[in-house]
Design a protein around this nucleic acid. Structure first.
Length: 255
DNA sequence: AAGAATGTCAACCGCGTAAGA
DNA sequence: CTCTTACGCGGTTGACATTCT
């Protein structure tokens, strides 16, 4: 037994939106908002669409603050970093990227970033054949538990088979959470000839060794997902010897 | 030039869950 | 409490575009 559909499929239009429908939805939402009820909104807006479809169209396409395409190197880095921590929590990841939707981030990951990382990992010979964990990645913490005490160990996605960042926390991450084990000395984004190659991976995505000059335990590495020149000046991440660390938004709730 | 293969992304589907009756 | 309703999310699909053979 399937669940009952949210609307009468025979009575609603499906498929691509026409410019007229877009305009009707946009002008209605800008004037009235969704009215707190997406289900009844289409009728009020004169649309023969399912409320869910209207909501999705607005959130993913018509919202005025939406940006499409043109992901920057820094956004790549944030997505990779957060995916390694959170898994496929696209809405959480998207919430860290201004103007990006979960759908956009998800598509971008599935069609571009993942490929890029797999190619890079294959080049470095680190691809794991393990299946991703089936356990929930973000178990809810007890409501009464202090956030700092709530840590749950899980596994990193297979693209990050050896990273020592498997612990999902409900508080801000520290540098230690981003230390990779000594086994990850080699730069997986480096070309076979040893040079870091833009063709082997994102031109901005690489790993770099902590040279040990400051901090970073022996044999440890800091993730350096993004060595783009524009990042050094950014205030919203912590630059550390050998790499960048992207702290989660402190307001980001994992529970 | 044409058909096949592959890539991209908008849209849909259905599940989990919060909120209200 | 239990039930219903609607929302939000992640996974998947399918149409269209682009590249390859």
């Amino acid at each position: 037994m399937g669940r009952t559909p949210c609307c009468d499929r025979a009575a609603v239009k499906r498929g691509p939106w026409s410019p007229e429908e877009d305009e009707a939805l946009r002008s209605y939402v800008l004037r009235h908002g969704s009215g707190g009820n997406w289900i009844s909104m289409p009728k009020k807006a004169g649309l023969k669409r399912c409320g869910k479809s209207c909501r999705l169209r607005w959130l993913n396409y018509l919202r005025p603050d939406i940006r499409h395409g043109g992901f920057t190197d820094e956004e790549d880095a944030v997505i990779i970093s957060l995916y390694s921590q959170l898994g496929s929590k696209w809405s959480l990841i998207a919430s860290q990227l201004e103007g990006r939707t979960d759908n956009d981030v998800k598509n971008y990951w599935n069609t571009k970033l993942k490929r890029r990382l797999l190619a890079a990992a294959a080049t470095a010979g680190i691809v794991s054949t393990r299946s991703p964990p089936s356990v929930p990645r973000l178990p809810a913490a007890p409501a009464s538990a202090p956030p700092a005490a709530a840590t749950v160990t899980t596994h990193a996605p297979s693209l990050f088979p050896l990273l020592a960042i498997p612990t999902v926390k409900t508080e801000m991450y520290t540098c230690d959470d981003f230390l990779a084990p000594a086994a990850f000395r080699d730069d997986p984004f480096a070309a076979a000839d040893g040079s870091t190659s833009a063709s082997a991976a994102s031109s901005a995505s690489n790993w770099s060794a902590d040279n040990g000059a400051v901090g970073g335990g022996e044999g440890s590495f800091l993730l350096d997902f993004c060595a783009g020149s524009g990042l050094g000046a950014a205030d919203d991440h912590l630059q550390l010897p050998g790499g960048y660390y992207y702290p989660l938004d402190p307001n980001l709730s994992l529970v």
